[in-house]
Nucleic acid binder design. Sequence first.
DNA 1: CCTACCGATCGGTAGG
DNA 2: CCTACCGATCGGTAGG
Lengths: 201, 201
Amino acid sequence: MTAISKAEDTRQRVLDVAARQFRDRGYAGVSLRDIADEAGLKAGSLYYHFRSKDEIVATVLDIGIALVHEAVERAVAALPQGPSPERLLTTAIRQHLQAFLAYSDYTSANVRIFGQLPPEVRRANLPARQRYEALWDAIIDRARAAGTVRNSVDTATFRLFLLGAMNASLEWFDPARGDVDRLARRYADLALHGLLGRPEA
Amino acid sequence: MTAISKAEDTRQRVLDVAARQFRDRGYAGVSLRDIADEAGLKAGSLYYHFRSKDEIVATVLDIGIALVHEAVERAVAALPQGPSPERLLTTAIRQHLQAFLAYSDYTSANVRIFGQLPPEVRRANLPARQRYEALWDAIIDRARAAGTVRNSVDTATFRLFLLGAMNASLEWFDPARGDVDRLARRYADLALHGLLGRPEA
DNA sequence: CCTACCGATCGGTAGG
DNA sequence: CCTACCGATCGGTAGG
């Protein structure tokens, strides 16, 4: 049984509220009074839990990456030895989409506002971003090592293409109405075989 | 010779400055004083050219879509009759990326801040967005009609996948250092044939 | 297109 | 965790 202190509980509630508000109105569009109101405390009291607005947003950004990183890493590690490139990449794509959409307040806050943050705050989130990119590069290179991958496109370009396509789904896909697993199968099919399948020559 | 009035010139300069600032700091992160300072006039004077902050941002959003729409539509119309699906889609992809990256202040302002705008402002930009999506759906369906397209993924899903991947390039691709045409060839190759090429069965 | 200003709101702090 | 407040800044307007 985990003992959850009142302060911990409040802190989590503040972060949940902050993530959703930052996603919806941007970094500068959310005041500490907005967050405090919805989280049920007074604006000045936020400083009992956080040192500044920047610390709140930095925490939201890191959580958004960490949840997805862990989900993808765990699912890939649980695969039987020597998976086909298809199986490996399809698993990673499904896990990324499932986690991304499940924690969409945090993940889409990250995707949406990262580019418009003060440089110091952006810098604080960079290591987590780079570790996640490295995880994907390792997965792609592992698929490549199986030998059936066409070699025309380098790892970084494929990773940027694929993560860009997946992250954009935050802007239109509603997990409450759509089937995440079906979306994952379609996106994996497109990433692996494209619209046409076999190249012309 | 086009006569450009002083007021028109100032208006254009204000929009250029506003687009870049909105892209970098978000909608609420940019004050009218910030824009006026960099455009070389006083904050109150902006109201000689625009009725409100919302009118400025709405104009920036519409320009971002219109420039890309026209470029893609024109290039596709200029194609010889009966182009192959490869040629048709590769042309559209190249034009989208070239225009998107050439006008990146406007286009990335649009991509980045759309989701965090007040609902009225978002609504004003919706028709332009939907017309552009319809243009892409028509292009994809035309490629499909040639008969060599696999039918496993529907038009809307492919369009969302592809536009998501392309638009994300705004966050990392620097046209001053990279080769847009090479990026376009790689993205077209991935969209058409995927990482593996031929499907397994 | 500028000057001078309005009421409202901002992030943050002192003191409890 | 609250009350009460600080100086700074916000979008917008009147009058020129």
